[in-house]
Design a protein around this nucleic acid. Structure first.
Lengths: 200, 200
DNA sequence: GTAAGTTTGCTAACAGTGTTAGAACAGTTA
DNA sequence: TAACTGTTCTAACACTGTTAGCAAACTTAC
């Protein structure tokens, strides 16, 4: 008898409607604003029904995190398959990765736990300005010293900052590993590449 | 009459005791666990008193964000002053920046809005594994092709990943700027540097 | 020294959050 | 029809940020 099957189908329907409703809310108002009650309202069920399908709110988010990585993987994979040469593959991956991040901000923020202070907040911190000025100094000087003096200091600042922040963020993500020497090496790599990129 | 002065002093004392208590709670249990009521308990005042000193919870966090950038700036400044050569300055800044981030995790997380999924969460995502494997492929191949084949693929992966994630994070921080061409250039810089670093 | 005014701090509430116990109802089976 | 199983709800608990309104204490003026 198909009763059991129908029940499973119905349950599956509710489950996916939860995810659909949650995603809609996230796209509308961001992760911070997502709540179980809002999801329940949207799917026209009472709150405890959601807990029949997911252990807790975190489990719902975890589901999306996995979805995000699956999509990212698919796009990176596609990029790799466009060429057999590793050099071109690496370039293509980078573009695919960036494209994914900017086209799927919600996913990317969840995947990497980016809480994202608002523009408002950022603008209130004048120390951030002095920070960028601080680092711009040496960069400007290095550019002035070099023959290839057409480099843009502001661009170089962003490159430098991205390097450092990326290294730290990725590290904090999977903390527990013993990576001190590795960080040291990566940093050396970064810096020497950065400096020689300016000196040319 | 010193009455007004005493009152100002007392008010200042309460204000700084709020910040002290808040910081203690953050170090103990992380940003997520910080609450106005816990602060009120710790300073042995009722909740509304806190709102006499700060507009809201965000204002307290903003205070710490500023503190964080002030400390970072101070340490970067110190690093710069150790040498007059831009090259060495840039290197010293990088080390100072990293040192600050790892020695002041709480500050850094707040400053860059890092929500930080727990290790637990990260380990549950097997897609992350396949993601790293995906990218390791081309990197391994490029290393194999190159003469300088003693490069560590895992290290190179981390370098690559940090580059990309850093670029994205810094971008998402101050969104609103029109930086598409800049990102393009930074990325080109990164990739060419990365590849030639492996090919050597 | 008493009366008026100001400041300070409190209780108690509002509106929201995640989560769960327990009752009520429906659908299925014997 | 009666018993059982599973689904779904109401209502609560323990939190969260935030604020209105009252009461007590302290300061000032008469």
């Amino acid at each position: 008898m198909g009763i059991a099957e129908r029940k499973i189908r119905q349950k599956e329907e509710v489950r996916s409607s939860i995810l659909r409703a949650a995603w809609k809310l996230v796209v509308q108002d961001g992760w911070q604003a997502l709540s179980i009650r809002k999801i329940a309202d949207a799917i026209e069920y009472s709150v405890p029904v959601i807990y029949d399908h997911f252990l807790n709110k975190e489990a719902i988010m975890l589901e999306f995190t996995k979805q995000g990585f699956q999509q990212l993987n698919a796009q990176v994979d596609k990029a790799i398959k466009k060429s057999p040469q590793p050099e071109q593959q690496i370039e293509a991956i980078a573009y695919a990765y960036l494209k994914f991040a900017f086209n799927n901000k919600e996913y990317y923020q969840l995947m990497y736990g980016l809480g994202m202070p608002t523009c408002e907040t950022v603008r209130q911190i004048e120390e951030l300005h002095s920070f960028t000025e601080l680092i711009l100094g040496p960069i400007r000087n290095l550019i002035a010293e070099s023959k290839n003096s057409k480099a843009d200091p502001f661009l170089k600042l962003h490159t430098y900052w991205s390097m450092l922040h990326g290294l730290i963020s990725i590290n904090m993500l999977g903390e527990g590993f013993n990576k001190d020497e590795m960080n040291e090496m990566i940093l050396k790599d970064f810096i020497s590449g950065f400096i020689s990129g300016i000196k040319k």
